[in-house]
Design a protein around this nucleic acid. Structure first.
Lengths: 171, 171
DNA sequence: TTAAACCAGTTGCAAAAAACAAGCAGTTGA
DNA sequence: TCAACTGCTTGTTTTTTGCAACTGGTTTAA
């Protein structure tokens, strides 16, 4: 019943919905890691989110329209979480946050290669990626001629992982 | 001494520094409202920040390099808070957050006119604005030929405020 | 058919952070 | 000299976070 916002400022309102240490992490994992189930989000979490926090954030994000939840037809207990148009449009914010983090924070190569591609690709790439996310999460029709940005980001990430694993094995 | 980050992901690292409900609000007020003293930030706060939270955030942001603090020569007790290159480079993130907030959240006209201009102006305007912030906060040399983005944002805001005040008075 | 593994969470508790209200000592200007 | 102003601090309550164990149901494989 607490629908009173602190102010009508767009920055503030964005912060009131996303301004905590976990909400964007959850959306990031769904968006870039294509994790769609509770356990996937919990167990593959790079940052080690706790199950109660994850449950709370998923609930809140669904309530606020940033995620949707459907039952998985293949398993009675599984739920499938999907992005909505609202969260798909966070791509530019993620891209800018990634660029800023890469410039000023001690990022790891493996985890920042995707941010680098997103930064270099610029807005046209972001638009392609958002269109792909709509196909993946909103059941929008797919243009089969277009190469997948998602696959490109994933391939670049796996390449760095493999290269570093090989370098470590050689030591 | 808790310098252990949760992960080396750029998104996560950005969130670890800025992912709370007040840090970006404080930077926003310094950046767009040109509030440079503690009391200015406290008393003009649209969202009503508490003094202990403000003190804590200012301290943290200075420690992490997002703000700098100098003594005000005109008043022995006053401190002047300034943006750093690190926080000036948040302009694109603010612009994207503003655009997202405007699209999806119940923003007020008065407080979103600046976000609108920033969105419409795009990256060239952001660059101009960042250059101006460097003049204002980093003592960088000013190009006198360039019209001030800061003044344009401020004028647009005051115009909306005045228009709405006139409309209310006429009722 | 039955046991083990898997599923999405929940519960209880301690610690940390946020929110609120009041107060403080030094500084300034009249 | 005194009121107003300065950047905070202190004490208390409330809320959020983090951790670990647990729950009731489902699926899988022997």
């Amino acid at each position: 019943m607490n629908e009173a916002y602190r102010s009508g400022c767009p920055i503030n309102l964005t912060l009131e919905v996303l301004g905590d240490r976990w909400s964007l992490i959850v959306i990031r994992d769904i968006m870039f890691g294509n994790r769609r189930h509770f356990r996937e989000l919990l167990q593959n979490s790079e940052e080690g989110i706790a199950s109660n926090i994850l449950a709370d954030r998923l609930k809140r994000l669904v309530e606020r329209g940033l995620l949707s939840r459907e039952d998985d037809p293949s398993h009675k207990q599984k739920g499938i979480y999907s992005l909505t148009e609202m969260s798909i449009r966070l791509v530019p914010i993620f891209a800018e946050m990634g660029a800023w983090g890469r410039r000023f924070m001690p990022v790891s190569e493996e985890l920042s290669i995707r941010a680098q591609l997103l930064e270099e690709g610029g807005r046209p790439l972001w638009e392609d990626f958002m269109e792909e996310l709509r196909v993946l999460h909103l059941h929008a029709p797919r243009d089969p001629a277009k190469p997948s940005v998602f696959d490109r980001l994933r391939a670049a990430y796996l390449e760095v992982v493999a290269r570093n694993a090989a370098a470590n094995a050689a030591e």
